[in-house]
Computed example of a mutant assay.
Amino acid sequence: MDSANYSRYAAPLSHTHRDIDQIGNVGYYGSDEANSDGWYKIYSGTLTGHADRVARLSIVRGYGRGHGIVLFHLRCDNSSSIKIHDLLWETRYKFDENHIAIKTNKNEYGIYVYQNSVQWGRIKVRVLESCGTSSNWTMTISNNSTKESSFTPTATGKDGSTVAKANEADTLTETVWTDVPETNISPRYGKNIKYL
């Protein structure tokens, strides 16, 4: 790179950057007050006909007490009931599977997050992407510091394939060390090779 082609690769001094908080709608949930552990509503909506909603959310708990990415997919099978196709953690750290939930009532739904820290910070949720088949739906969220007084979810989160495979690695156990048959061993590596 030299003065002849530098401007093709480097941004000019006058360019502007977008702050990460300008990308994707953001909301904060929970409270710094004592006894703030509980369920907080992130979003609620209504589906009719055969509409559906799909969104991916980034979730970060304050004080470094957890983060993850969740995908949900809802579909209205008719004008009065909603089917939950997916509620999956694509990544998850220090959140339990069931710390994200959906509650449905006929054709209404709500997305909820569980704050299990009694007094340490809020949960930040960012909408990474959202779409719907029947309309140009955009998920817009806002802050909520009021926890649910009583809450029974219709469905709670499950680990998606990436998280599930990582969890499988945590549960591997050693089998029995077995000698490799001599016919499969090159003489230069010796004959004392074993495998699990």
Results as ranks from 00 to 15, higher is better:
Y9I: 08
Y9E: 06
A11K: 14
P12C: 11
D19S: 15
D19A: 15
I20Y: 15
I23P: 00
G24Q: 08
N25V: 01
G27D: 03
S31V: 00
G38W: 02
W39I: 04
Y40M: 05
K41E: 12
G45L: 04
T48G: 14
G49F: 06
H50L: 12
H50K: 14
A51I: 00
V54M: 11
L57V: 04
I59T: 01
G66K: 10
I69T: 14
I69M: 13
V70F: 14
L71I: 11
L71F: 13
H73S: 15
L74W: 12
I82P: 01
K83S: 15
K83T: 14
I84A: 10
I84S: 12
H85D: 14
D86K: 15
W89I: 02
W89D: 03
E90T: 15
E90V: 12
R92G: 01
K94F: 13
N98K: 14
I100G: 07
A101M: 04
I102M: 04
K103V: 01
K106Y: 09
N107D: 09
N107Q: 15
E108D: 08
Y109K: 01
G110P: 02
G110L: 07
I111R: 05
Y112N: 02
N116E: 09
N116M: 03
N116W: 10
S117A: 11
S117E: 04
V118C: 05
V118I: 03
R122L: 07
I123K: 02
V127L: 10
E129G: 05
S130P: 01
G132E: 08
G132P: 03
T133D: 12
T138H: 11
M139L: 14
T140E: 15
N144Q: 09
N144I: 09
S145Q: 10
S149A: 15
S149W: 10
F151S: 03
F151V: 03
T152P: 00
T154V: 05
A155Y: 08
K158E: 14
K158I: 00
T162S: 13
T162D: 10
V163Y: 06
A166N: 06
E168H: 07
A169L: 11
D170I: 01
T171I: 02
T171A: 12
T171N: 15
L172I: 07
E174Q: 12
T175Q: 12
T175I: 03
T178C: 06
V180K: 06
E182P: 00
T183C: 13
P187N: 05
R188A: 12
K191N: 13
K191W: 01
N192R: 14
N192Y: 12
I193T: 09
Y195N: 02
L196V: 02
